[in-house]
């Protein structure tokens, strides 16, 4: 029965979010911001992981500077496409580094009202009179918010992928998907989880938003943690390059994204811990 109840909470959360046009507004904003940032990128030489500098304004793109780490390497030995690599770097930077800032700020405020809204609409008393367990309700609300956000991000991911292909040209789709699924999604889910759970005790939308605002610096700290690690790994690639180990997309971004994913697991674990605290507190309060 608990599973059916949870599925119902998730389904109706999604339906209400859709009817409030919340998902449409949020998704539209994300997409516009991503396109705006991408379009604003100046046509300047692109630096790849401190390894080579590529001038993409020429056709074909040319290497204008090589650093000591790859001293003596020719373009052929680098084993990369000079078109693909800078474009991939651009979209990965957008997705894994710039976009999470927007996501963090938006979702912690946006989803904070998920549970308080039930109190404001005065439906909580009805729910409490049913055999719906606290854990099921909390879990349903959390999964509902995650589903709403996940679907929105999925649409943004696909739309931006198509638009970015038109704006910047070809990029590596696998790296693009990795950046979304291993960096953006888990980070966004963590921030949403924090927000839904931390604001669950608030009695009104207004108080929930205040709690969401308090969480913004916390979300920024999380962001700083994973983005610093991301760049540390990416920038370190240059020092490890040699003729025997050609520069590939996997070498450039793969490790950074997978290390970031490991960190994100810890972030998600913090949501699980917060869930247990909130659930235990609600049980104590009866």
């Amino acid at each position: 029965m608990a599973l059916s109840q949870m599925a119902a909470v998730v389904r109706y959360e999604l339906l209400m979010a859709w009817r409030r046009r919340a998902l449409l507004v949020m998704g539209g904003f994300f997409l516009l911001a991503l396109i705006g940032f991408t379009a604003m990128q100046p046509p300047a030489p692109v630096e790849l992981a401190g390894t080579v500098q590529v001038d993409t304004s020429t056709d074909p793109p040319t290497i204008i500077q090589e650093y000591s780490a790859v001293d003596g390497l020719t373009v052929e030995e680098l084993n990369i496409s000079l078109n693909l690599l800078p474009n991939t770097q651009l979209v990965v930077t957008m997705i894994a580094v710039i976009f999470p800032v927007l996501v963090a700020i938006t979702v912690v405020v946006f989803f904070a009202e998920s549970i308080p809204l039930d109190r404001q609409y005065r439906v909580r008393e009805l729910f409490d009179s049913t055999p719906l367990a606290n854990a099921t309700y909390l879990g349903g609300k959390l999964l509902g918010a995650w589903a709403a956000l996940g679907l929105t991000l999925l649409v943004v991911m696909i739309s931006f992928g198509i638009l970015a292909r038109l704006i910047v040209g070809a990029f590596d789709p696998l790296t693009y998907l990795q950046a979304w699924f291993l960096a953006v999604f888990p980070f966004a889910l963590t921030c949403t989880g924090w927000s839904v759970l931390a604001a669950s005790g608030a009695g009104s939308r207004r108080k929930a938003i205040m709690i969401g605002l308090v969480l913004v610096p916390g979300a920024m700290i999380l962001y700083a943690l994973f983005s610093i690690q991301f760049w540390a790994v990416v920038l370190d690639v240059g020092s490890r390059m040699s003729a025997d180990e050609p520069l590939t997309l996997t070498a450039l971004f793969g490790e950074a994204i997978s290390q970031s994913a490991v960190m994100q697991l810890w972030f998600l674990a913090s949501v699980a811990a917060l869930f247990l605290i909130v659930w235990a507190w609600s049980r104590v309060r009866g």
């Binding site: 507004v25 405020v109 946006f110 009202e113 939308r205 207004r206 938003i209 969401g212 913004v216």
Partner: peptide
Amino acid sequence: SSAGVLAVI
């Protein structure tokens, strides 16, 4: 209110 707050922040 959340939309107004978001616009500002």
